[in-house]
Design a protein around this nucleic acid. Structure first.
Lengths: 277, 277
DNA sequence: CTAATAGTGTCTATTAGACAGTATGTT
DNA sequence: AACATACTGTCTAATAGACACTATTAG
């Protein structure tokens, strides 16, 4: 039976906050960026890679597996402050683009305790991270192979390669339009493989109707570089004239050029900034 | 200093789950539907309204204000089970379309205790709710007025009318493309006004690239009814031929007709179901 | 017959896709 | 000169917007 109070102050004074069961909330951050691969032929443009930041776990559970950077939410900080704090610690940067991705809360997603995880998506220009990464963190390039309803994701860098697969099903009752059933995953901790798939999906969608890509770009960039970033995220080739037509309203041409590649120099552009439509 | 364990079992056996600070998680549900208004002229089509289900609070905090239906997450249920349980209690239906909207976690959003709120968006055909609503629940029609960067939302039904306004700003760092600053709000509890704006925004976006509208439609409907639902959600008129061209691939014409309106009968259609593209 | 909605044909405007061509650097 | 990328012009295809027209009912 609920008590009746005279006013809000009386209610709050008498309130016992332990009457409801409590749990912990963690945050995972998908830090996406773009990497250039080294090139043998001085004339060729370096190939772009889509990459994500992972951390190697040094204790149980999932000891020695890779996982997304993250941590527990403190009671005195806003929800979004937690991923910001982790990002600042991990990259030394305070102004990284961050958006909430999804909150995962299966009963058994953590073997230790009941924990809810709010995943965030962060986009950064990797060149801004001057400091060395923490010892246990590393960038992994992402390659995706799709066949019918099966997706194969491979994560690789100089030292390590691993992959996992997932079945993509139409499901209007869950995450956006698709549901993912992660099949083989021996290397990513917790439900991080699922988080990664949902994040890639979100980025792929939003790249088409927002300006978020520019958070992965340096201040000055060529249109071809920008196009390559769209191409690795969307995982398909775009036609130059069409791309330039569409992107034109979002960028500003500068008087600078990038030269030295054994071919015609390319103009450098800047992001024009958000426009209210 | 972190202890080192021999294996995962040893770690879990020794694990003290109270070492991290704990909090409560609640869930709010934005139940959207569509209402017909009664008509004086037998020939005219009934006007459609976009509506949301609200509950009147009968105790502190925010006593006598309206709020979204919701409740606390139990430790033994998956995150999504909480809104499902509340919806089942509130509407007596178990198969309502439900998707996660956003997780709100400002430190002071609840005056009682630190609480994180995961908001869900639910869409339902109001005609399916045969039982009377619980005594403290009511449907409110939503009307929106936009002027420049200001949005005025009015909620009204036979007994009650109230409204609140919000300033819409471009902000690439938060909820989708826009940020809302709720200005005057004397009737909705907690941050429910913000949740409502974010939910309307989400629905408006997703209606264009998903089939979620059909969750608000009865099994059989005319194309004009469907068009009206699009129109009240998007808050603008659509042209008949264009709408029919586009929607055609999503619906199936049946051999039934709706007649009796003093004009040409209209064919009834069914939803064709999700198509993998 | 009238007022109202149902439904279609077709022209036009806009946007996207494709291809071929010209431009201009470094070695 | 050769190779590679930079950049543009223009045709075509597909899609969206607009309008006018025909069809059909209850009263």
């Amino acid at each position: 039976m609920e008590k009746i109070y005279l006013n809000e102050e009386a209610f709050l004074a008498d309130y016992d906050e332990d009457q409801y069961q409590k749990l912990s909330l963690t945050t995972d951050i998908l830090v996406f960026s773009v990497a250039d691969s080294l090139n043998d032929n001085y004339r060729r443009l370096p190939k772009k890679h889509f990459s994500v930041l992972l951390v190697k776990r040094d204790n149980y559970p999932f000891k020695d597996k890779w996982c997304l950077p993250g941590g527990f939410l403190r009671l005195d900080e806003d929800l979004e402050a937690a991923p910001k704090r982790v990002l600042a610690k991990e990259t030394n940067l305070h102004d990284i683009y961050l958006e909430q991705l999804y909150t995962f809360g299966e009963v058994n997603r953590d073997p230790r305790l009941r924990v809810i995880n709010t995943a965030y998506l962060a986009l950064v220009d990797k060149n801004r991270i001057h400091e060395e990464l923490l010892a246990n963190a590393a960038w992994f390039n992402i390659t995706q192979q799709e066949s019918a309803d099966q997706v194969l994701i491979t994560l690789h860098n100089q030292e390590t390669v691993f992959s996992f697969s997932a079945v993509k099903t139409l499901n209007e009752h869950h995450l956006d339009i698709y549901d993912y059933q992660v099949m083989e995953n021996d290397h990513l901790a917790f439900d991080n493989a699922l988080v990664l798939m949902v994040g890639i999906e979100r980025l792929r969608n939003k790249i088409n109707y927002t300006d978020i890509v520019f958070n992965m770009m340096p201040e000055y960039f060529t249109l071809k570089e920008l196009q390559q970033v769209y191409e690795i995220i969307l995982d398909r080739k775009l036609l130059d004239p069409a791309f330039r037509r569409i992107i034109n309203e979002k960028v500003l041409k500068t008087d600078r050029y990038r030269r030295g590649g054994g071919h015609r120099p390319s103009a450098l552009y800047k992001y024009r900034g958000l426009q209210m439509k």
